[in-house]
Amino acid sequence: SSQSQGISSSSTSTMPNSSQSSHSSSGTLSSLETVSTQELYSIPEDQEPEDQEPEEPTPAPWARLWALQDGFANLECVNDNYWFGRDKSCEYCFDEPLLKRTDKYRTYSKKHFRIFREVGPKNSYIAYIEDHSGNGTFVNTELVGKGKRRPLNNNSEIALSLSRNKVFVFFDLTVDDQSVYPKALRDEYIMSKTLGSGACGEVKLAFERKTCKKVAIKIISKRKFAIGSAREADPALNVETEIEILKKLNHPCIIKIKNFFDAEDYYIVLELMEGGELFDKVVGNKRLKEATCKLYFYQMLLAVQYLHENGIIHRDLKPENVLLSSQEEDCLIKITDFGHSKILGETSLMRTLCGTPTYLAPEVLVSVGTAGYNRAVDCWSLGVILFICLSGYPPFSEHRTQVSLKDQITSGKYNFIPEVWAEVSEKALDLVKKLLVVDPKARFTTEEALRHPWLQDEDMKRKFQDLLSEENESTALPQVLAQPSTSRKRPREGEAEGAETTKRPAVCAAVL
């Protein structure tokens, strides 16, 4: 046999249950609850290399294929790409003598399909299967379609040439079993990697079954959420508030809700932002270029202005709740996480202390139980975000031990490091100062900020419009641009040419 590394010779191994799959997660993409704000000051410096380099560890398999027929071997997927077919160049070659004697062998292509993985959001991997055969590759009886790919989820059954000719079961060793999710959700989405997690739940990458488009699904544990919100009269209202707010909003710089499922837990389906959180971008770069800050901040102002015009105060604006559309420097941003939002009543007064301390406005800290506050709290938070983006460190921090965090904020005395700000323009610093004003009545509004000289930049605004146009074009394009080929190089076993392929839609398939 010419099988590559990772293939075992026996096809009769006992199949494990899916609970053996491991679970991976990374930083929070968007969480309903406010958790302790991640610290920006503690960015690790590059460490000196050791005298002796450690040995390379043996790579762990990321997936496993269990053979369902004699003549096929099990495969431990270690590499990122595997070709399957009769050709000797394939990493998994159909060359077992037992297999060659079967009637089905002649229906398999020289290069029938490939399984591979690509880097997705949060640097996690996504597994795909890609059909290159004349007679078809099927996943859970659905045709992939020649020249098309679809994501592979845990426990997928792979069939060759005929939908009933099941050859492998695919085990993704990095994700959960699909069966743990409600059927209504599974009918519409293929669940994938964990993108982030918080005290009350997690955010998962998923794929729409009909279109193969990526989405983010925010899962909120009702049990954990009820415990964490025990002081509230009705904890469920917080989730329902977020859903109702998101459904009503329609702005290019605000995250869109696509679906909602109320089962044992809450499942909020949101558009996916491939670039992750602004927080991670700031930490990764230490600070952002001023031109990049301007492009992002302009969009934040437009989003918050839209919220305020619609009578909504976000109340928890922070870099973790600003998501980026891509890994590119120039990209769209979207505001997310409306769990603490407040729809303005007639009095415009709110007395609930919520939000993240580092970003809270002075009037929030001094008015607990005594007075109210209004939309100006969001403008203060925007000032803190702009400060961080321009400088790479927070204006107020618990680690300045000589003054408490509350006193720093209520006095408006931010930590100004001259040598850092020497590289920032006077106009940018002036806008920061106009937003970090203790008196909410004297603080800049979103309208005033948008009129500030720093943002009178036609090149930046043109760039934003171009990015918007690109997004609109990409969302308007159909996901499947061509029909699967019906040509046949070899006959199917026991049926006429093209008899099955043309009847089945290529579900969740995307043209390369």
Score class of each variant (00 low, 15 high):
residue 379 C to T: 10
residue 506 A to G: 10
residue 277 E to F: 00
residue 348 S to N: 15
residue 368 V to R: 11
residue 415 N to W: 06
residue 377 V to I: 04
residue 280 D to N: 09
residue 468 L to T: 00
residue 376 A to S: 08
residue 370 T to Q: 10
residue 348 S to R: 15
residue 419 E to G: 15
residue 487 S to P: 04
residue 504 R to S: 07
residue 267 Y to I: 14
residue 499 A to S: 14
residue 452 H to I: 00
residue 488 R to T: 02
residue 489 K to N: 09
residue 428 A to S: 12
residue 253 C to E: 09
residue 480 V to S: 06
residue 339 G to W: 04
residue 289 K to T: 13
residue 477 L to Y: 13
residue 508 C to R: 09
residue 380 W to G: 02
residue 251 H to D: 06
residue 298 Y to A: 11
residue 405 L to M: 04
residue 483 Q to Y: 07
residue 311 G to R: 08
residue 341 S to R: 01
residue 329 E to A: 13
residue 331 C to G: 10
residue 336 T to G: 05
residue 248 K to V: 08
residue 453 P to T: 04
residue 345 G to F: 03
residue 465 Q to P: 09
residue 294 K to F: 03
residue 376 A to C: 05
residue 281 K to A: 08
residue 510 A to K: 03
residue 317 L to G: 01
residue 461 K to M: 12
residue 297 F to Q: 11
residue 458 E to G: 11
residue 487 S to M: 00
residue 346 E to P: 06
residue 489 K to H: 09
residue 447 E to W: 08
residue 460 M to V: 11
residue 326 S to P: 13
residue 510 A to P: 07
residue 252 P to K: 07
residue 276 G to R: 08
residue 281 K to T: 13
residue 316 D to H: 04
residue 484 P to R: 00
residue 261 F to R: 05
residue 314 H to F: 01
residue 305 Q to W: 13
residue 464 F to P: 01
residue 315 R to C: 03
residue 343 I to M: 05
residue 319 P to T: 14
residue 245 I to P: 08
residue 338 F to Q: 02
residue 341 S to K: 06
residue 319 P to I: 01
residue 362 P to T: 06
residue 249 L to S: 03
residue 502 T to E: 05
residue 404 S to R: 15
residue 484 P to N: 15
residue 334 K to A: 06
residue 356 T to D: 00
residue 368 V to N: 09
residue 284 G to N: 06
residue 247 K to I: 14
residue 292 T to I: 13
residue 373 Y to M: 03
residue 335 I to V: 15
residue 261 F to S: 08
residue 414 Y to R: 12
residue 369 G to Q: 11
residue 268 I to A: 15
residue 418 P to A: 05
residue 279 F to M: 13
residue 291 A to Q: 08
residue 436 L to N: 12
residue 455 L to D: 00
residue 378 D to V: 01
residue 258 K to G: 09
residue 350 M to K: 09
residue 508 C to N: 09
residue 450 L to T: 06
residue 317 L to C: 13
residue 325 S to K: 10
residue 283 V to H: 07
residue 505 P to D: 06
residue 427 K to V: 02
residue 250 N to T: 05
residue 404 S to V: 07
residue 459 D to K: 02
residue 435 L to M: 13
residue 295 L to K: 13
residue 449 A to W: 03
residue 255 I to R: 03
residue 374 N to S: 11
residue 353 L to D: 01
residue 491 P to V: 04
residue 374 N to H: 11
residue 352 T to C: 03
residue 323 L to M: 10
residue 350 M to V: 06
residue 315 R to M: 01
residue 243 I to L: 10
residue 320 E to D: 04
residue 290 E to H: 04
residue 470 E to S: 01
residue 382 L to D: 02
